[in-house]
Every structure is written in C-alpha cells, then in structure tokens.
C-alpha cells in the first residue's frame, strides 16, 4: 500500500503567483482607468451651494435664479424635452428656457463695450484692427479659457461630461447679459474690465489683427496724406547667397525713414519694414499700448468713443501729428539702430 499520500494545505504556489501578478497589474501599467464621471454624479456635490459660491467668488450679488438660468444650455433643454416625450408627459411641469437668447444679448453688449474701450486707449488704431481684436476677445476660444478660470465649467447643465468651448463661452456671455439686466450697464462694464479685458495684457495687438498686404496699406495712407510713395532701400546686408543671409530694408518718404525690418530675402525684409511702419503709424509698439485695468479704468469716459475710428481708407497721419512733415518723428526712433 502506498502511504506517501500527504494532504497539502495552505495557499498553493500557482494561486499566490497569480494573485501577486493580478495585484501588480492592478497597481500600474495594465490598470483599466475608471469611467469618467461628471462632478454632479459625485457625493460631494450640491448645485445650490456651488451656484451660491460662484456668485460670491466673482463678488457679484445676483440671486440664485438669475445665476441658474445662465448655465442652462440648449442641449440640456432638448434632452429634457426628449425624455418627457418618451414618458408621454408633454406639456407637463416647468418648461426650461435655454441661455441662447441671453448669450446673443451678452455678445452684442460685450462687442460694443470692448470696441469703445479699445478706441479709448488706442485712438490712432484704425477701425479694422479694433473690430478684429474685439472679435478675438469675444471668440469661443478666449471666452472658454476665461470661463474655465471663473468656475463655469462644472456648473453648465448639459448631457456632456466635458462641455464644449461654445457652451462655456455662451455661459460667460449670458452672465454679462444678466448683469446688464439686473445691476445696470455700469456694473456689467466693470465686470468686463476686470475679468475679460486683462486677457489683452502683454499681447501683440498687430499679431492679433494680422493685416494682409501691409505694403499697400502704407501706400494708401501716404496717398491720403498727399505724400509721395515710399522708397525701399537696402540699409544693411550680410551672407548673400547663403542660408544665413540677412537684409535690412528701410522705407523712406522724402528722405525720412518711416520703418525698417530684417528678413532673409529682400522681399521679406520689405514686408517686415511695412509692418514696422504700420506699427509706428498706429502706435502699436511695446511702449505705445498702455491699457488700464481694475478700479483705475472703471470711471473713464468710454461713451464718448462709441463712434468708429478712421478706417484705413480715410486714415491720415496729419490727423494725429501737428508737424508740417508728419513722417519726421519716426526717424528719431530709428537713430539708435
């Protein structure tokens, strides 16, 4: 008879190895990530408290109902109506109103105010540039960036987990419209100055505008002033016929320098010189743009600037300089080169 049959007890090697392997995988590299959930699905979420904190955070005393209606997106309204229809409960209960109307109103308020703000601080800049910067400020990309930083993102009522840029931008616009309706235009303007307009701080406004064909624009301005066409001249050059070539072209009017710029070809350098000339005409240099933000900017006379600035077609140097030769002043800037 065989007596070598000994009962083995405890955890088998294969089991311990398998468990260890499972734990390792769970630990790091093979881990299946959790399903993404919206913040409202978590335990620590109270919509009323969040809405209250949103108003307090921005230091605006708006009522709960006013604040709630700016976050109701059209997609949420459609979803709710569809759900009611499926249940056969049409025309029952409260009908939701989306923020699309408010956001349209806020958009027009913001556009008109940002334009008059820009005209106040940039009197020499033509209207094309003003409207371009204003359009950039009111774009979905900019407003969604700002809206994320005031806490709109989690509060938006929509079936999506991550709200789109347009939804966040719409909520910011409708917040402005609600401020205008309830607290008056003054408070609304203060909000725009404090929260929206600082986005322009330290930005290159000429780059935002991005004018096409700058040479023709300079030519047009000189024509308006009754001055002769500019004369491009090669100021310096190095490394001709190499990949390191650099040309500096200056634009001269009546032997006065109006702008210069470097480039790898003469053509590019001339275009850069035209950009430089426009920058000096419109005072869009680093030291030329001086916005005010915060309390210093609250009580300025923006209403006087509701009329449009001169368009490029009518823009004249003689409107802004009292010298007999208006092109003379930029030359002094260029001397240090």
């Amino acid at each position: 008879m065989c007596v070598n049959n000994v009962e083995k007890r405890g955890i088998k090697t294969w089991l311990s190895n398998t468990l260890r392997e499972m734990k390792d995988r769970n630990r790091d590299f093979d881990l299946v990530p959790h399903k993404k959930r919206h913040k409202r699905e978590w335990v620590n979420w109270n919509y009323d408290s969040e809405i209250y904190a949103f108003g307090k955070r921005l230091n605006e005393d708006l009522s709960q109902d006013e604040l709630k209606k700016i976050f109701i997106d059209q997609s949420y309204v459609d979803e709710e109506e569809k759900r009611k229809k499926d249940l056969g409960l049409e025309n029952v209960g409260v009908t939701l109103l989306s923020n699309s109307e408010l956001s349209n109103k806020g958009d027009s308020i913001m556009k008109s105010f940002t334009q008059s703000y820009l005209r106040f601080f940039l009197p020499r800049v033509p209207e094309e540039c003003i409207s371009s910067i204003s359009h950039n400020l009111c774009s979905n990309q900019t407003l969604s960036h700002i809206g994320g930083y005031i806490g709109c993102k989690d509060l938006i009522m929509s079936p999506l987990i991550d709200p789109t840029e347009e939804m966040i931008a719409n909520s910011v616009k409708s917040l402005i419209a609600v401020l205008d309706e309830t607290k008056g235009s003054k408070q609304c303007e203060k909000f725009i100055i404090d929260i929206i307009l600082p986005y322009l701080h330290d930005k290159d406004l000429l780059a935002i505008w991005d004018p096409v064909d700058p040479e023709n624009k300079v030519r047009k301005i000189l024509q308006n002033d009754g001055l002769p066409d500019f004369e491009p001249r090669l100021m310096r050059e190095t490394g001709r016929n190499t990949i390191f070539s650099c040309y500096i072209v200056g634009l001269y009017v009546n032997k006065n320098l109006i702008g210069y710029g470097p480039g790898e070809t003469i053509q590019v350098a001339q275009e850069m010189a035209a950009y430089d000339a426009l920058r000096r005409f419109f005072n869009l240099t680093v030291s030329g743009v001086r916005f005010k933000f915060g309390p210093a900017a609250h009580n300025l006379d923006y209403k006087s600037k509701q009329e449009a600035n001169f368009s490029i077609r009518d823009w004249k140097l003689s409107y802004f300089t009292q010298n007999t030769n208006p092109v003379e002043s930029p030359r002094k800037v260029a001397v240090s080169m």
Partner: peptide, 16 residues
C-alpha cells in the same frame, strides 16, 4: 495664474 488675476478684482482660485 488665471489671465485676469492681479489686474482687476481678486478671484479665489480654490473652489471646493
């Protein structure tokens, strides 16, 4: 920091 911080009104960045 947030683009508006340090210019106009102060907004507390801690939300929850």
């Amino acid at each position: 920091n947030a683009p508006y911080q340090g210019f106009g009104r102060y907004v507390c960045q801690l939300q929850r």
